[in-house]
Design a protein around this nucleic acid. Structure first.
Lengths: 204, 204
DNA sequence: GCACCCTGATTGACGAGTCAATCAGGGTCA
DNA sequence: TGACCCTGATTGACTCGTCAATCAGGGTGC
């Protein structure tokens, strides 16, 4: 029983090992510049094993993206449902994204650089999932307008884009800098975002 | 005389022709997916001629980027100098960027997707030039704070990132959509940006 | 006849994906 | 208990297509 479990989980571990190694090398060299052998080397695993668990190099990235993006979508829905002001809801969304970066900067770098901002490759492939996030944010804005918390002369979809774009740009700067970001910065960034954008969305 | 002009300008034209063709194919297929022969075909020119005018495929993209980015930097400086409120200055910057997209969507797509947002390849190469733009915008914000037009509890550099990020995200949506954007949208987008961000930056 | 523009076949490197072979553990039956 | 088989994990050399970059030569105007 334990043997079987060890056997099974041994297999699962290798798969996970490959995914984790892929994050590291994708983050370091970028998707295009990494050879499948780089992933295998980083994972301490034979070249062919990558193809035992995945159909292609693309699929490795897809899996990494979907794994984390589904968490973001869940967090947005959670924020929608949680009672509180709509400003707080947007703050929760921004907070989750910054927190994701704090938790695993390499993974967030890969997702943003290789998927979210890659309009010619994976961004197109995952357009639907990506847009689901924008729509979730837009819904919070629309609800906030209905509740009179936000001005109504700004299209929710536009506001959503501006909000998300600002978040991602701040992350991108950290990504470019490639230095450890001090913890205080995360809180600061979240507050800045909420302050600036939400105050800008307040009724006049 | 006319012959010589034709000769000389013939050469210059070919160079230009190659650059223009590159914009089209880069926009259609992305930098990585376009072969140098694609550029030559689109330009109606022999493969080798591309290497007569450029050292590498990379250099073609670099040239396209620098050509346009220098215009943006000039526009930002121009906005700084032009008298008026700081809100108007930021509006001018956003207006210039949206106008650039209206004027040549393919070129802007290439620049944003392949350079500005490509943290692993050309974005890194041109980091300095890109940041010069952020700094220009930050300077406008800082001046606005000094003049009492903007609140002072938001770091100019942060505000600049949020502002630019919002602009680029709106552009990115248009890029993804890949449809002709109605003229009214440009004006709308510029107004939204200025309204939301600048109102958010107003003193409380 | 020289200086430059232009051509496109050729080369050489590179990397994704394949595949045939080995290995390890666990179940089965006498 | 031990002989046997089966499954699927693991390996890495190899194939095969692709593409950037080179190069040798053919025009053309001055």
């Amino acid at each position: 029983m334990e043997q079987r479990a060890a056997h099974r989980s041994g297999a699962v571990d290798k798969r996970r090992q490959i995914l984790d190694a892929a994050v590291t090398v994708f983050a370091r060299q970028g998707f295009h510049a990494t050879r499948v052998s780089d992933i295998a080397d980083e994972a301490g695993v034979a070249y062919g094993l990558v193809y035992h668990y995945f159909n292609s190099k693309d699929q490795v990235l897809n899996e990494l993206f979907l794994e984390r993006w589904s968490l973001l979508l869940a967090a947005i829905e959670e924020a929608e449902r949680t009672p509180g002001s709509h400003r707080e809801k947007l703050g929760a969304v921004a907070g989750f994204i910054f927190e994701s970066y704090r938790h695993d900067p390499e993974l967030m770098k890969v997702i943003i650089v290789e998927v979210t901002r890659a309009a010619n490759s994976f961004g197109r492939t995952h357009l639907e999932e990506i847009r689901r996030a924008y729509e979730g944010i837009a819904k919070i804005v629309a609800d906030g307008q209905a509740a009179g918390e936000f001005r109504s002369d700004v299209a929710p979809r536009f506001a959503s884009q501006a909000f998300y774009g600002a978040v991602e740009q701040l992350l991108t700067e950290w990504i470019f800098d490639d230095v450890q970001v001090a913890d205080s910065r995360f809180e600061e960034a979240r507050n800045l975002l909420v302050t600036t954008i939400c105050d800008g969305l307040e009724p006049r």
